[in-house]
């Protein structure tokens, strides 16, 4: 599965993922805490400038967040009607500024870099017995499973169509669960065989 990362060579692409995540988090908090229209507008403008710097076309956003413009428009209309112009501008600006910034982080950071950043951020969790170093492994294994599940689902659907069973959710779901659970047992055996030690 391809990620939403858009390759590029801008300053933002080259910036490490960790600090970008921190900036996103801090911006999110301040925008909600400051709660001033002018401040939100400034943030929004800065984010737009950053998009220019990253050289990513705005229509890319529509692909990631389908229905976003409809949501923003409905929200704007509702806010004007219910709370007046000031609140409407505030809410919609805040929503768009944060969305654009978050999407920018996603599109300029490789998934592996974000995973690394999250793994280091989660390192303290090792103290309570969790294993943050497993994040990359689990994400990789999940991505491997997705096409396998799709294949199995298609097999089951074809077999059932051949027997005249059409579109009954449980008739697909149940065999799919049982088959993939069996598959998971085999994969876990293979992991052990390949030297993956879980303890």
């Amino acid at each position: 599965m391809l990620s939403l990362y858009r390759p590029g060579d801008s300053v933002l692409h080259r910036a490490p993922a960790g600090p970008k995540l921190v900036v996103l988090l801090v911006t999110c908090l301040t925008v909600f805490l400051v709660d001033e229209l002018w401040f939100t507008a400034v943030c929004g403008t800065v984010v737009l400038v950053l998009w220019r710097i990253a050289l990513i076309p705005y229509r890319e956003l529509g692909r990631q967040l389908r229905g976003l413009w409809v949501v923003a428009l409905l929200l704007a209309v509702f806010q004007v009607w219910a709370n007046g112009w000031h609140e409407a501008a505030m809410t919609v600006l805040r929503l768009l500024a944060l969305l654009l910034l978050a999407s920018l982080v996603t599109m300029t950071s490789r998934t592996s870099h974000i995973v690394d950043a999250l793994e280091s951020a989660a390192r303290p969790l090792a103290l309570v017995g969790m294993r943050p170093g497993r994040i990359a492994f689990l994400i990789g294994l999940t991505l491997r499973f997705i096409p396998l599940i799709r294949e199995k689902a298609e097999e089951i659907r074809a077999a059932q169509r051949a027997r005249g069973v059409e579109r009954r959710p449980l008739a697909l779901l149940l065999p799919l669960l049982l088959k993939t659970l069996t598959m998971a047992d085999a994969i876990s055996e293979a992991l052990d065989a390949r030297g993956f030690e879980s303890t």
Binding site: M1, S3, V71, T106, I114, L118
Partner: peptide, 24 residues
């Protein structure tokens, strides 16, 4: 949720990325 956050389009319609968490 981590898959969504690190930028895989795993939500319906191929949506994903951190922007999702800022939608209503």
């Amino acid at each position: 949720v981590l898959l969504v956050a690190v930028g895989f389009p795993v939500l319906p319609g191929g949506r994903g990325g951190m922007g999702i968490f800022f939608l209503p």
